[in-house]
């Protein structure tokens, strides 16, 4: 067992995947707490579909995937925020509209160029081999950015998440913080998408936040706990996928779900004991 794990770290692609994956999980979990509480969970899902469409276009143009995806997904994130706050098309419908249309564009572009082959499967469900050296540097930069911004703006993020109107009334530029969160979410998703898969990446945003909310009672503990949960689940998931040769993205999601069930069970148990006590 230990020998196998030691062997795992001799592969460059595994080390890259672990570095990128851990950093993306961490960022996704931190941003996820705010997104889930603001009822914006589906934005992550919508953006990953946009990412799929942009990846298809990048492949068709023979361009670097991140160079094409990042601007498109960031643009989509701002568009989604704008739509969900002030428009005749309501937020959830706007997300469905944008995600299905970019999925359709992606599928059409792929079938016209390379044809529907394993590439499509890799985009949708992720591939551990997808991480390049540039991705590693980019994810370290992104991870540092998210962590620093999160620590510096922690109190404002809490205020804007809890009560946007109150925050605005006291002079906090809530719109700017929403934009910041959307921007960082877009970057996290584009970076993690090729490894986790376009269909699965939003789980990293939603599930750790939900898991930690089962047991934690303050915003600070929820935030810290979801970062820990997310990183631990990713590591267990990737080791499991290495040992059993299962798809990485799906394995990580399953570990996350398992932990969510454990936390939910514990919270129900605690509540029962309180009632009977």
């Amino acid at each position: 067992m230990l020998a196998v794990l030691g062997e795992m770290f001799t592969y460059t692609f595994m080390i890259r995947a672990i570095i990128v994956g851990l950093l993306v999980s961490l960022c996704a979990a931190l941003l996820g707490v705010s997104l889930v509480l603001k009822r914006y969970s589906m934005i992550g899902d919508g953006l990953s579909h946009v990412g799929f469409g942009s990846l298809a276009i990048a492949t068709a143009l023979h361009a670097a995937p991140l160079l094409v995806s990042i601007p498109i997904v960031v643009l989509a994130a701002f568009l989604l925020l704008r739509l969900s706050s002030s428009s005749k098309i309501k937020g959830d419908a706007a997300i469905a509209l944008i995600s299905t249309s970019s999925l359709a564009i992606g599928v059409v572009v792929i079938s016209m160029t390379t044809g529907m082959n394993t590439d499509v499967c890799n985009y949708l469900f992720g591939s551990i081999l997808a991480m390049s050296k540039a991705d590693v540097y980019l994810s370290i930069a992104l991870g540092a950015c998210v962590l620093i911004l999160f620590v510096l703006f922690y109190h404002k993020i809490l205020a804007v998440t809890f009560d946007e109107t109150f925050a605005r009334a006291t002079g906090v530029p809530a719109g700017a913080y929403n934009m910041l969160i959307a921007l960082l979410t877009a970057l996290t998703i584009t970076l993690g998408m090729r490894m986790m898969g376009a269909l699965l990446i939003s789980s990293l945003i939603v599930i750790p936040a939900l898991t930690s909310m089962r047991l934690c009672k303050s915003f600070k503990t929820v935030t810290i706990m979801s970062a820990i949960v997310s990183a631990v689940c990713f590591y267990i998931g990737i080791v499991w996928s290495y040992l059993k040769a299962t798809p990485t993205g799906a394995s990580v999601v399953l570990v996350n779900i398992a932990l969510f069930l454990v936390f939910s069970g514990t919270s129900i148990y605690i509540a029962r004991r309180k009632v009977s006590a």
Binding site: L158, F162, D163, T170, K217, S218, F219, K220
Partner: peptide, 19 residues
């Protein structure tokens, strides 16, 4: 959304000082 928000009382009250 606020009614089931996971923040403790001190965190919420302190956020009033942001202005």
């Amino acid at each position: 959304a606020q009614k089931d928000f996971p923040a403790n009382v001190r965190e919420v009250v302190l956020s009033g000082r942001l202005s």
